[in-house]
Amino acid sequence: MTQFVEWDALANILVFGILVGAGLPTLFAVGVRLLAGHGAADAEGHVSRPRLVGAYVCFGLVVLAILGAVAYIAAGGH
């Protein structure tokens, strides 16, 4: 069986797949929650500065990851 399955590659795909494939949506979700979650806005509908900064850091990282992936595709990395 071992000669038919590349276990190392498979384990790498699974580990990094979970890190990236689940990590990025999680970051995005944290950003959304910071902006619009329960208690995000005060009575006047303003979102506090730390929450805003945190949210945009999250979204920024996601955008960076997408740009990185595009660069990776363009570089013929696969």
Binding site: E6, A9, L10, N12, I13, F16, G17, V20, G21, A22, L24, P25, F28, A29, A69, Y72, I73, G77, H78
Partner: peptide
């Protein structure tokens, strides 16, 4: 939310699998 999670998983697994040569 599901659509976003699914597509990101797909993109990650597809790119990683070619990266690791599998």
């Amino acid at each position: 939310r599901q659509g976003m999670a699914a597509e990101t998983s797909s993109a990650a697994v597809i790119l990683l699998s070619s990266h690791f040569g599998y």
